[in-house]
């Protein structure tokens, strides 16, 4: 159901690339002031949806309203309301940080004094004042991401699209960026964010949509998403020399428990009732496994994501690393 106060409203959005269905009849709405996240693996359709919403691609069908403006046939209609931070930093390598921001501000019709003041303000906020006269091409990845986000908000947009904002940067920079994104949202900016980092979506977003192969499979708040598994008991066992077919033997011997082996010597156990750890450890060790750790874990968004989509978080991270991402 679409809220009356929605800043982004999408109905029946569909997009093919040749015979490949990239976006399949997608509906969603983002309320004013909300931080809405799209979570899904590579090729799920996240960037395609952002490109369509921002005017960089045309949908095959569907309707789009941004800030109350119907943009379906005219992607330029609401571009003054939005800021976009693409998945790759795409500022001008030959311009300095300061000049890049001033140029981006000029694209939105800001006057010289106004854009220079805003550029200085943002360089300061993003901790880049010391590098303002350096060429963008010489910035580190983290600095590039920060300046790209600064460029996306130079004209104070009411809606900000962030495509994989922390991909490919170090942990400290990613943490700083998340704080900046959170502050922007608290300042009233409606944010549409795509990510393949589950913990990032969980930490930042008010609501999350799980997207897989162009389909939205679930949309809700983090609280509501994890509610069905809150009462479940989850145990994680770390095991060296994992016995062959251990999952099969465990399932046969403990029919009330659900076992998965996501790799890296891990065995995950889920159950409706508390799990008897000692019994399980003994069972594994009797079959040649060496258990080094067994701990109960709180059900998280990752659990529900895996449950709904069938995709392991590790798989998404590896995929991204293959394409040059990763942290």
């Amino acid at each position: 159901m679409i809220d009356e106060k929605s800043y982004i409203e999408v109905r029946g959005l569909t997009k093919h690339f040749g015979k490949v269905l990239a976006v399949a009849d997608v509906d969603f709405a983002v309320a004013k002031g909300e931080l809405f996240g799209f979570l899904g693996p590579n090729g799920a359709g996240k960037t395609t949806i952002i490109n369509i919403l921002t005017g960089l691609a045309h949908p095959d069908s569907g309707t789009i309203r941004i800030g109350g403006i119907d943009c379906t046939g005219n992607s330029k209609a609401a571009q003054h309301l939005i800021g976009v931070v693409p998945d790759e930093s795409n500022l001008y390598p030959e311009l300095t940080g300061f000049d890049n921001l001033c140029f981006c501000a000029a694209l939105y019709g800001m006057k010289k004094a106004e854009r220079q003041a805003r550029a200085r303000e943002l360089l300061n906020v993003f901790g880049l004042s010391g590098a303002s006269d350096r060429k963008f091409g010489g910035y580190s990845k983290g600095m590039k991401r920060k300046l790209t986000i600064a460029a996306g908000i130079i004209h104070k947009p009411v809606i900000l699209f962030l495509d994989e904002p922390t991909t490919g940067i170090d942990v400290a920079s990613a943490r700083h960026l998340r704080q900046l994104i959170s502050d922007l949202n608290k300042g009233g900016t409606t944010i549409f964010l795509t990510t393949h980092y589950i913990e990032e979506a969980e930490r930042l977003c008010d609501r999350i949509a799980f997207i897989v192969s162009g389909h939205i499979v679930q949309v809700d708040t983090v609280e509501h998403l994890v509610q069905p598994i809150q009462a479940r008991h989850i145990l994680q066992i770390v095991c060296a020399n994992m016995p062959q077919d251990i999952q099969k033997y465990l399932s046969a011997s403990f029919p009330d428990l659900e076992f998965t082996t996501p790799g890296h010597g891990l065995i995950r156990v889920e159950a409706e009732k508390p799990v008897h750890v000692g019994l399980l450890v003994r069972f594994i060790e009797e079959r040649g496994g060496e258990v080094s750790e067994a701990r109960r874990i709180r059900p998280s968004l990752e659990d529900i994501f895996v449950r709904i989509t069938g995709i392991e978080a590790n798989h998404m991270h590896k995929e991204k690393e293959k394409t040059g991402g990763g942290r």
Binding site: G55, L56, Q79, H80, P86, N90, Y92, P93, L107
Partner: peptide
């Protein structure tokens, strides 16, 4: 190629 042209396409300027 370096995608900076997208920045222009995203600006609210008639094409």
């Amino acid at each position: 190629k370096n995608r900076s042209f997208e920045r222009l396409l995203l600006a609210p300027i008639p094409f």
